[in-house]
Simulated scan of single mutants.
Amino acid sequence: MAPRKKPYHWIAKEIESLDPNTDYEKIFRLSASYGGNDFINNLVYTLIFPNFVVTEHGARAVWREDGGKVLGAATARVEQTETYNATWWYYGPSDPRTQKSVEEINKMHTHWAKQYPGDFSHNEDYIYTLAFSAIFMHRLRLRLGLSGVSEKVQIASYIFMGEMVKLFYSEGGVPLHGWPESWDGLITYCEEFENRSREGTEQGHLIASTIYDHFAFRWFPPQLHWVGRAIPTSLALPTTLRAHRIDPPNHLCRVLVVFFLGCFIWLAEILLPDPQTAFLADYEQMSKGEQIERKKEHRQIDGAFSPYFATRHQNQWSGCPYHAGLKLRSKVVE
């Protein structure tokens, strides 16, 4: 039997029928797992990840010596991150698939901690990442002049991420601690972390530049790369741009990006029907052939992006060994 078609605007109604204290996984799934596509997911990644490498140790472990996957396999890295997050947000912290996925991340961190000892031992990095993820959409909507997420979604998001905290551990298998006591506490925690004075690093600058350039390179033609870069940098946290020593677009550009994106989302929520299926469900139903073609396309993008980025940036920041070390790369880092 074909699945029953859901009403035109069904997500908000279903969320309203649920109890956030007990149904927090389902509410978070409904609020975070529907409506995505490759463009939107890439934009979300571009807006989120630079915030997590504002510290010296965070940037060092990601850029490493040669850019790592963030440069050599930029699209594949976006896909990997999207898949991990989509799995967690859709299935929830109580599901074995989420627990297995998080453990893969823990093991990955353990592996790299052997090469960068101490860099994965900072408890606040993990807490900030999960707190930021909980409040991201709420803050973005407010930034765009829209209403924030509902109180039920706030409660559900707070509990959901609090349960996710229990699945991660820092270097040496140390359990995470210090989860804020409320939704407002999450916002306060993030703002305090973000507003600290930071000198920034060459590696952090390169990571953020790579991520912003990659979004533009992947989704916009060459003559509009400046537009593709202006969209995320107009929406990025000013503190993050300062830490990475990246100049924001001019004021008019930022105003236009916020205005048009806010209007687009507002009209879409009014005029378009809610998605019938979640992004992860569609992704998991791809055929083997579709998966192969998808990976082939990503390799082609990455093979072209690395030399493009190196050409743009290798002569910048005189005296920086990481900029000087950029070479024209023609193959994806495995």
Rank of each mutant, 00 (worst) to 15 (best):
R29F: 06
V257R: 01
A156E: 04
H9G: 07
G319Q: 07
Y189V: 10
H9P: 11
S234C: 03
N85I: 13
L186S: 07
E290S: 11
M108T: 13
Y283F: 14
I48W: 04
I105Y: 05
H251K: 14
V53H: 05
A230K: 02
R254K: 15
T210I: 11
T233C: 07
L30I: 11
Q80F: 02
S287K: 08
R254W: 00
D19G: 03
Q203P: 01
F168D: 02
F49W: 00
S101P: 03
F28S: 11
T22A: 05
Q80G: 14
K6P: 05
V227W: 00
C253H: 00
F309M: 06
P3G: 03
G303Q: 12
G72D: 09
A2N: 12
I265Q: 05
L206Y: 03
L235Q: 05
F259R: 14
E171Y: 02
I246M: 12
D184M: 07
V78H: 07
F160Q: 01
T277K: 15
Q203N: 07
A73N: 15
D247S: 13
L328V: 12
S94K: 13
R254F: 00
Y126T: 06
Q316Y: 03
H111S: 08
F28Y: 15
V165P: 00
G72I: 08
F217V: 13
F264Q: 09
V149D: 08
V227F: 12
G228E: 06
I159H: 01
V62F: 02
I270V: 12
V332I: 15
P50I: 04
V102F: 06
G118N: 11
L326W: 04
R312G: 01
S170V: 13
